[in-house]
């Protein structure tokens, strides 16, 4: 009896120590993740003079002023950039999500010759880096005058293997064929069934993929930077890179921080609201081991 209580006390003490260490590690990682963003927010509230003056963790009072300055900057038209980015990101998210769901449904619900091939083909192309196509794609766009055309950034999303794969897995989990058959008996044609019966059933998956594809497009830098040459058509990441290549020492640093903040803010807001769903969505689309 006695040794038992001693042992169990020892075990509890051990567990407590382990727990404390774990929380310390978590605290360090949390600081590591958040510190740079905290600095960003603090610095976006400080004037250029304050920023040159020294380091502080306490916010200042120049947030609005920096915002107005950044918003009205003549060389970097950030409101226009955000509007452009939003337009491209929203449309490509809708395109990618809708057509991936449609493709996944085509393979999930129907039996046709070549179905297996189509499935494996899509899985195989998932790992080909998009940059491999870039050279030819950019060349075609220049040749046919399709640079500065948003469609060239939106339409490729129709073929999104990763989104397809996620949708396919989701359908396997939630979509019984009986529903499709019931709709057939009820007199619905196949296209109508997909739009009115199937899509509403996929809402959670659609929402997750809309977020992911929107964020991916909003953050996308490589291809837009090669295709968008007109300044009024440029997206936010291109403007950020422009900021970097400008002689920034002449810049108002408060404004620079404000630009960065504006670039990431929409995604951060969405993330703060929907992080639970987003994190759930990360796992359900991945390959099961």
């Amino acid at each position: 009896m006695n040794t038992n209580t001693v042992n169990s006390k020892k075990a509890i003490a051990q567990l407590t120590i382990v727990r404390i260490i774990v929380y310390i590690i978590l605290a360090i990682l949390t600081i590591l993740c958040l510190f740079s963003f905290y600095m960003l927010i603090i610095n976006s509230t400080r004037s250029n003079g304050e920023l040159q003056g020294g380091f502080t963790l306490i916010p200042s009072t120049h947030f609005i002023q920096n915002l107005v300055n950044a918003w009205n900057d003549s060389s970097i038209n950030i409101p226009r950039g955000m509007l452009n980015s939003f337009l491209i990101a929203a449309l490509s998210a809708i395109c990618a999500t809708y057509f991936s769901a449609l493709t996944a449904y085509g393979i999930h619900a129907y039996n046709f010759r070549g179905k297996k091939f189509a499935y494996w083909f899509i899985l195989a192309i998932m790992v080909i880096p998009s940059q491999v196509a870039a050279s030819g794609f950019v060349q075609i766009c220049y040749k046919f005058g399709l640079t500065n055309n948003y469609l060239m950034l939106i339409l490729p999303g129709i073929a999104s293997p990763v989104v397809f794969f996620y949708m396919k897995q989701y359908m396997e989990a939630v979509l019984p064929m009986e529903i499709v058959e019931a709709a057939r008996v009820d007199g619905s044609n196949e296209f109508f069934t997909f739009n009115r019966v199937i899509l509403p059933m996929l809402k959670p998956a659609l929402a997750v993929q809309l977020i992911f594809t929107f964020v991916a497009s909003w953050n996308n830098y490589f291809l837009p930077s090669l295709l968008l040459t007109k300044s009024e058509l440029k997206t936010v990441p291109i403007m950020i890179a422009q900021l970097r290549s400008a002689d920034y020492s002449k810049f108002d640093m408060g404004k620079v921080y404000m630009f960065i903040l504006l670039a990431i803010l929409p995604v951060v807001i969405v993330y703060l609201i929907l992080n639970r769903n987003i994190i759930k969505g990360v796992t359900s689309g991945s390959v099961k081991g």
Binding site: P176, E178, I179, E181, R184, V185
Partner: peptide, 28 residues
């Protein structure tokens, strides 16, 4: 199927989960 003038009851009911009972019945 829709032109055969048949109706069918499925083993797992196959109700449309996003529609109310009324809309399920009214769909066809």
């Amino acid at each position: 199927p829709k032109d055969r003038d048949i109706a069918m009851v499925f083993q797992n009911y196959a109700l449309y989960p996003h529609m109310s009972v009324y809309d399920n019945m009214a769909f066809s």
